[in-house]
Design a protein around this nucleic acid. Structure first.
Lengths: 151, 151
DNA sequence: CCTGAAAACGATTAGAA
DNA sequence: TTCTAATCGTTTTCAGG
């Protein structure tokens, strides 16, 4: 990110991923083609890596979220849990972490029963023990990395 | 979500939030205006809640991520930690959770030093103790809630 | 709820500063 | 890197099944 204009463009697109070049042009005070050139550079440099619709988890039948920490049962085995778990679509995120456990997963499922099944699948697929923390309520998530102008 | 066509539209837009109506039309085999009508309904019903550019955290100077569990020091005090912490831009997500701690936060910062400062800010702002788990590596995150067609 | 076509709007490209 | 202006593609709207 080169300057404040780029920052502004990224902030706008973080808020509204379908903002038009005309919208961005108005927001930053440059011509449409100048904005377009900057946007292409931001994408080419990997600052902006893509665009996503955000989907309501309840509306698509996955109202229950949980953090699942996992620890290999046998520390001698090859540890490729992320690969071994990739096919489980309920898992939204997988990070390796410092501390007690080896990985932190974040998952969304349809029901407590589906969570039970998922945890069992994880244990079998990756040869790990698990520690599950159920999410009761989500206050906010996916807040923009780059704050909007009036912040 | 009414049927398989809506599901397909949501899946496409989860993958590519800037897909045009023509793209979606080709993917689902309906006319552009039929797709547009369905998309408007999906947005109106709150199935699709918005669109976001995805931004590379390292490219914008926030390479270090951490989970921070927080617990109120005084269980008698009013517990509005999410509000009290909302102004801290480094915090990307805030969930209330079952289990030992009251909330799970996810944050992104520039450096270990910035993480130390953040944790101190959290303690002061919300009157809580914290338990921080540093992320060593992120294998995947924000995986689509609705799987693409060829899955 | 769908299609198809016309009009309005946005994106892209070329040429010049 | 920026701008303007012409061209091309996309979205919107509407008449009709």
């Amino acid at each position: 990110m080169e300057d404040a204009v780029d920052t502004r463009i990224v902030a706008e697109l973080s808020r509204d991923g379908r903002a038009t070049l005309a919208d961005l042009s108005a927001a930053v005070g440059l011509s449409v083609s100048a904005v377009q050139a900057r946007l292409k550079r931001l994408e080419a440099r990997g600052v902006i890596t893509g665009y996503r619709a955000t989907v309501d988890a309840e509306a698509v039948g996955r109202p229950l979220a949980a953090f699942i920490e996992i620890t290999p049962l046998d520390p001698a085995q090859p540890d490729n849990a992320p690969e071994l778990l990739e096919h489980l679509g309920a898992i939204e995120a997988c990070h390796s972490i410092a501390g007690d456990a080896a990985y932190m997963l974040f998952a969304r499922v349809a029901s407590p029963r589906a969570l039970e099944d998922l945890v069992r699948d994880i244990r079998h697929a990756a040869g790990v023990r698990t520690r599950t923390t159920v999410v009761l309520q989500t206050f906010y998530e996916h807040r923009p990395l780059v704050p909007a102008a009036g912040d």
